[in-house]
Structures are given as structure tokens and as C-alpha cells.
Design a protein around this nucleic acid. Structure first.
Length: 272
DNA sequence: CTCCTATCCTGCGAGC
DNA sequence: TGCTCGCAGGATAGGA
């Protein structure tokens, strides 16, 4: 469930809670059957180096340990980082602990274990990052870019908006919200979206994501802040998870259908 | 190349 | 009350 606004919320909180730089002293892996093998040896090689800063690319968290790189973390559906101070408590589904010289411990908890990790050296060339499209808030994401990227695509616009190679960070929830605010039907063929409509998608993508960040992300399923607090944007969904409820704009019922295995919500009257 | 489906996993709520 | 079942959706492998 964590999409760009939720990951961004986590990144900002982690940076507030961890001193920088903080020297890594121990890497503890509590279970090995995560979605992929946690790069324990590689991360241990950063011992003695300080955690500099935590940034985000798409839905990935990047823990930088300096010029040699760092740890890349994807939260999957239910991944959650928290910060504790020694002595720490163990909770069900705690999988990884990173101990620092400040006595702070960064703990990764993930009930469904959809999250995954890798060590990175260069974020521009890493295999998980190199093919990701522009960040929604960057100048590279604009109407001309979107129009040309969609030109040859025949699939439905909603599914294609979730393709990370097109634009970074949009998942199932925000795809529905963006298209509602853009007045575009999610089933429209991507190649038939006009340039003017592309401009609306770009604009609404930025507005929805920025608003969601301002509200601390959405806790629709089980997203939690580093502090354990919930986000606030789920109360501001205009269509997502609102099937059968009145459209905030026209009052008619919000529709729902499954596209590429994911639930899509939209207003069949407001969206053309 | 493009698009779709199945897969991984646990927790929760609906239905009986 | 207690059980089963289906669904929630990140990315990706593999097939049409």
C-alpha cells in the first residue's frame, strides 16, 4: 500500500528521528525467508561508516552510508520502519535490526513480507532503479513527456499510470484519485488521451500527491508512520474504496471494477 | 513490444 | 461463537 506519499512521509520522519551521521555498529537479520535475500554481508561492510541521510526514489527508501552507497528498501504492502532506543522490545514480524552508535536501533517489521532490499552503489545504474520514470514533482514529468510516452500504448490509462517506468510512485489508490480529479475515465485507451488531458493528469498528480504528503499519507490498510501514528489522507479519498457512495461532485454512485487484477474506482458521470 | 495473469504473504471482515 | 473464504496490492516472471 505505501505509494509515493507514504514513503515520503517515512523518509521525512526517519531523518528527524536519526542523528546524522550515525555510525552503524550491528546488522541483525531475524529471519532469512524475506521476499529476497537481505544483503547482510554488504550492509555489514558499512559498519563503522555513518548513516548520512535517507532519501526516496519512487517507492524506494535509500539509506545512504556515503560514497560507497547504501541500503535500498521497498516496503511492499506492509513494511514498516521504526526507531527504538536500547533496550528495545521485540514485536511479531520484526525481521531486521540496524544498531547505531547513538544507541538508536532501526527496526524493520513486515507481516506479509512483501518488502524487499538490496545494497546499492549508484542509484542511477542500480537494476531496480535505472528504468524508473521521472519523479512526479520533477520538470521531466510534463504534458509533452506524458503525451509522447502514452502515444503507442493501447492499454487502459489507469493501469498504465501505475507503471513505474512511465512515472515514479503512483500505485492503485492514487491512480484512481488522480483520474477522478482529471475527469478522465480509467478505462480509456492510454494512446487516445489528448495533450490537454495529459496536462490535467500531470497537474492533478502533483496536487493529489502533495496533498497526501501534507496529510501524512493514507492509512487505508495498515500503513503507519515511523512513530506508529496513522496517516490522514484516507479520510479525503474522493473515489477510492467508495463504491456505491455518492460522488463528491455530482452525487451519483461511485463505480468499481477490476482492472489488471486491481480495484478501480471512478464516477461514470463526471469522468469522460 | 504490449498486455494480462499468477505469485508471494498475513490480517481482517463478510457470510454462514 | 467459530470457522472458511476472499480480498487488500507492491513488483515481477512468464505466457499469449
Amino acid at each position: 500500500m505505501p505509494e509515493l506519499p507514504e514513503v515520503e512521509t517515512v523518509v521525512r520522519e526517519l531523518n528527524l528521528q536519526l542523528p546524522s551521521p550515525d555510525q552503524l555498529v550491528e546488522v541483525e537479520l531475524l529471519r532469512k525467508d524475506l521476499r529476497n535475500l537481505f544483503p547482510k554481508k554488504k550492509i555489514e561492510s558499512f559498519k563503522g561508516e555513518g548513516l548520512q541521510t535517507i532519501t526516496r526514489r519512487s517507492k524506494y527508501l535509500l539509506f545512504s552510508f556515503g560514497p560507497r552507497g547504501g541500503l535500498l528498501s521497498h516496503l511492499g504492502m506492509t513494511g514498516h520502519w521504526r526507531v527504538e532506543k536500547e533496550p528495545i522490545t521485540q514485536r511479531l514480524h520484526d525481521h531486521i535490526r540496524l544498531r547505531f552508535s547513538s544507541k538508536k536501533v532501526l527496526i524493520y517489521n513486515d507481516p506479509r513480507r512483501f518488502g524487499f532490499f538490496d545494497a546499492y552503489e549508484n542509484i542511477k545504474t542500480h537494476k531496480l532503479l535505472k528504468d524508473i520514470g521521472p519523479e512526479p514533482f520533477s520538470d521531466d514529468f510534463n504534458a509533452d513527456y506524458l503525451k509522447s510516452a502514452l502515444k503507442t500504448r493501447k492499454g487502459p490509462i489507469k493501469t498504465i499510470l501505475m507503471n513505474q517506468a512511465l512515472v515514479a510512485g503512483i500505485g492503485n489508490i492514487y491512480a484512481s484519485e488522480i483520474l477522478f480529479r482529471s475527469f478522465i475515465k480509467p478505462t480509456r485507451s492510454a494512446g487516445k488521451i489528448t495533450r490537454e488531458e495529459c496536462a490535467r493528469i500531470v497537474q492533478q498528480t502533483r496536487e493529489v500527491l502533495a496533498e497526501a504528503i501534507r496529510f501524512g499519507g493514507s492509512s487505508f490498510d495498515d500503513f503507519k508512520h515511523v512513530s506508529g501514528e496513522k496517516g490522514g489522507f484516507q479520510d479525503r479519498f474522493q473515489v477510492y474504496d467508495r463504491a456505491g457512495e455518492p460522488c463528491v461532485s455530482c452525487g451519483k454512485n461511485v463505480s468499481k471494477k477490476v482492472q489488471a487484477g486491481r480495484s478501480t474506482y471512478w464516477c461514470s458521470f463526471c469522468q469522460k
